[in-house]
Structures are given as C-alpha cells and as structure tokens.
C-alpha cells in the first residue's frame, strides 16, 4: 500500500550541522536534514546509530552540543515552547500513569498541551482512532497494541503539525503493526500531519513512508524519497538489501 503523497516543498523540519556529543563519543555528527511538510519520513539505522538522540533534540528534550534545528519554523533551542505547541511525540516504551484510567491519562496530557475542551477533543481523537469504550479502563488492562494507540492519541490531542514516533512498532504483533500503519497513513492523509518515524523495521518503511534517511554511527549516509530509492537501487529486490548495500559502502 503506497501513501497518498501530500508533501509540498515547504520545509517543516530543518537541521544544520546538528551535533550531539556525550563525554567522548559522538552520538550525532553534523546532521543536515530538511523534511518537507506532509512527508512521512522514515529514519533508519541500527541500534545506537543516533536516531533517538536526533528525535530528542528535535522535540526539545535535549540540547545539541553544536548546530541548530528548527521545527515548524521555530528554533528548538530558542523557541522551544513554540516548537512544543506544534509537535506531538510518542517515545519508545512509554508506560503512562498506571494508577490513572486511559481517559484520565489523556485528559491530563491534553490539559498540559493547553487543549481548551479536553473532553470533546479526547472523544474526537478516540473516534478517529476507532477506539470505543476504553475511557474507564485502567491502562493495566490494555494490550500493547491498545496502549500504543493511546500513545498516538495523547500525541495528536492538540492537532500538532508534526508527529514524532520513536520505534512505534516495537513489541507489537502483526495485527498491531497493521493497525498502527493504518493510523499513521490516515493521520497523514486526513489531517495533513508530517510524520517523523524512527524505526528499524524496513518492511514497515516500505509500506508507510514517503521519504527515508539512513543514519550510520551518527552520520546521515543517505536521504531520498522512497520512489527514487527503489528506482536508484533497481538491482536490489527489497529495501532490506538496499539498507545493507548502503551500510557496506560506509
């Protein structure tokens, strides 16, 4: 299933020489990246390549060592509050507040995002995600797939322009992965959301994303649209093979 590409040439995420160092190691090395409005960007790389570090900087969680980044036209460092207003984020392995019900979790996070009518908005989002009768359930009673959908719900309550997903399919069964894919595409098509997705599940990227970037040891080694990529590497039969070919070159 290919997505309906709504992307325009208006860059919504831009990084310039974005670098993050930890003590003696470089987690991200001079990343220059531009992602246009409406894209579903798949950020590929093996464990420890620097994907989560990148997302953490783009979502204002951590400060870069050098370089800069802007999201929705706002600098992530100097205008972090503005950036926070226009993004939604689902981290990897988030467990939420288990003492609260699903609804209470959403209400709490909606209020912190400054949503005016949390109740209406939650119902709207839950309907959009085809979730029913979950409001009073405790999160402990949820399956991993349902939790992940609540995770998406909390991230889109305030209608963000950009949605960051860190390994969203981690731990999901095939049905869960399929449902999540459906949601991501629906968000992109119907709400026009730009989606930045960290993943190492190549089959998912092939089915969901419009653009890909490959990160290797903190360096961006490849970035292009999925269509171009498949054309360029026509000798390779799958994205998996392309990924390994790229890896071997570096």
């Amino acid at each position: 299933m290919k997505t309906n590409i709504q992307s325009s040439v208006v860059p919504i995420i831009v990084t310039q020489e974005l670098t993050k160092k930890y003590d003696n190691s470089i987690a991200l090395d001079s990343l220059c990246l531009s992602i246009n409005k409406g894209e579903i960007f798949g950020f590929l790389g093996h464990n420890g390549a620097g994907k989560t570090t990148t997302v953490s900087m783009l979502t204002t969680l951590i400060a870069p060592t050098s370089g800069s980044a802007s999201v929705c036209g706002f600098d992530t460092q100097k205008e972090s509050i503005e950036v926070q207003k226009c993004i939604g984020y689902l981290p990897e392995n988030v467990k939420f507040y288990d003492s609260l019900t699903a609804y209470e979790n959403l209400e709490y996070l909606a209020k912190l995002s400054g949503v005016k009518n949390p109740k209406e908005k939650i119902n709207e989002v839950l309907m959009f995600l085809e979730f029913d009768d979950v409001e009073k359930k405790k999160l402990g009673e949820f399956s991993k797939g349902m939790r992940q959908r609540i995770g998406i719900a909390q991230a889109i309550l305030h209608d963000p322009e950009v949605l960051f997903l860190d390994e969203p399919t981690s731990g999901l069964d095939p049905m869960g992965i399929k449902n999540l894919r459906k949601i991501i595409i629906k968000l992109n098509r119907e709400k026009g959301m730009t989606i930045f997705m960290n993943t190492h599940l190549l089959s998912e990227v092939a089915k969901t994303c419009t653009t890909i970037g490959v990160l290797n040891q903190g360096k961006l080694i490849y970035r292009d649209s999925l269509v171009h990529t498949m054309e360029r590497f026509h000798d390779e039969s799958s994205l998996e093979e392309i990924y390994f070919t790229l890896g071997d070159k570096h």
Binding site: T59, Q84, Y89, P91, V94, F96
Partner: peptide, 14 residues
C-alpha cells in the same frame, strides 16, 4: 520508570 517525562517535556510547559 514509566518513561513519561518525554511526554511532558515535549509539551508547552516549563
């Protein structure tokens, strides 16, 4: 433990 701080710190609240 629940990894909820990234949810909070990416929202418009100091």
């Amino acid at each position: 433990g629940n990894n909820t701080l990234p949810l909070i710190f990416t929202r418009p609240i100091t």
